[in-house]
């Protein structure tokens, strides 16, 4: 560490110095990088697969939409049973005593059944007596009755028929559900649900938590994502739509989701598929810290000395002494 506090003059004392134009180098680099970027942009453009709206979802796959909406009422979707920060229905992830998902509480409260189904229907029931009466029947019934209707309806849905964008189930005791679902589907197909889910009483909107959670509960968006190799089990975070490169720099983070113990239900040392998100964030934090601390970690900091790659980079310095050629004489460092 003797050079720690040394000035550059002391550090380089006796070293042969050659002319080197840093500013010219930067200017050339700017031109080269800009030219390369321009050529790539002109030749390949950039990925832009259009967004999915709740309207396109309800139009393209009405059955998936209605099934998801019924599941929201039954409380069986991902968001309904999520836990923090949206609700208290789920445990959330933890590893031993480490459970940050629990620590921070329900900060973005979302009641899926109400937010995604009941409230939008209530707003739409204005001047729609049929829907208003169905909604009243639903709300006046006890949870037990609602559960029976939902159970019967959900069992009938897989055999439902879709005609002209409408979903029809065989006759049965579903209470007001078919009317509610037909209306919600109609509102969604018309594009009104897209607006209702982001409004939240505000005029200006920038927060899409509700519609994204709702779409995430369905099978339509994740089906499209699966085709594009974007899901978690497909290294999705480093992939991109079309034939474009993605966030390749996330390869290590994404890799952990594909290997033991994060793919296993039993896992190892309490780390498993159930708390993979937490485990991998902790692991990546540790690895990134280790990368930052490489200068101080014995072994890791010595690898460059053991590998001869530096001898290629500094081959002028390591070149054998040649007395006749003064320009590459051995340095007196």
């Amino acid at each position: 560490m003797k050079s720690m506090g040394a000035t550059q003059e002391e550090y380089y004392r006796g070293v042969r110095m050659i002319r080197y134009d840093l500013v010219k180098e930067l200017a050339i680099a700017l031109g080269a990088a800009g030219l390369l970027g321009l050529v790539l942009a002109a030749a390949f453009s950039s990925p832009d697969v259009p967004q999915v709206t709740i309207a396109t979802w309800a139009q393209s796959d009405p059955l998936d939409f209605v099934t998801t909406a019924a599941d929201e009422l039954a409380g069986s979707t991902t968001s309904a049973g999520y836990g923090n920060p949206y609700n208290t229905a789920g445990e959330g992830q933890s590893w031993g005593p480490i459970g940050p998902q629990k620590w921070f509480g329900t900060r973005i409260p979302i009641d899926s059944a109400n937010a995604f189904v009941i409230q939008p229907l209530q707003r739409a029931s204005f001047s729609n007596a049929n829907l208003a009466s169905a909604l009243k029947t639903w709300q006046d019934s006890d949870a037990d009755q609602q559960g029976k209707w939902l159970d019967a309806y959900s069992k009938a849905l897989p055999d439902a028929t879709v005609t002209d964008g409408n979903v029809a189930v065989v006759a049965g005791d579903y209470g007001p559900l078919p009317v509610m679902m037909a209306n919600l589907l109609g509102i969604a197909q018309a594009g009104a649900l897209d607006g209702l889910l982001v409004s939240g009483g505000h005029f200006y909107q920038t927060d899409y938590t509700q519609p994204l959670l709702f779409m995430g509960d369905g099978g339509y968006l994740s089906g499209l994502a699966d085709q594009a190799h974007l899901t978690g089990s497909q290294w999705g975070m480093m992939n991109e739509t079309g034939s474009y490169p993605g966030q390749t720099w996330l390869w290590l983070y994404t890799m952990w989701y594909q290997v033991f113990p994060f793919t296993s239900d039993d896992g190892f040392l309490g780390l498993n598929a159930g708390n993979a998100d937490l485990g991998i964030i902790i692991l990546m934090t540790l690895l990134t810290t280790a990368l930052a601390l490489v200068p101080f970690i014995p072994g890791l900091r010595d690898v460059p000395r053991w590998l001869p790659i530096h001898r290629l980079i500094w081959r002028r310095y390591y070149a054998p002494r040649r007395s006749s050629a003064s320009r590459i004489e051995a340095p007196q460092l």
Partner: peptide, 17 residues
């Protein structure tokens, strides 16, 4: 679409931590 699914996918990692 890419942004939509990255958001849906990534929220679990952020929430879990």
């Amino acid at each position: 679409f890419d942004a939509q699914f990255i958001a849906i996918n990534a929220k679990d990692a952020m929430n879990g931590a």
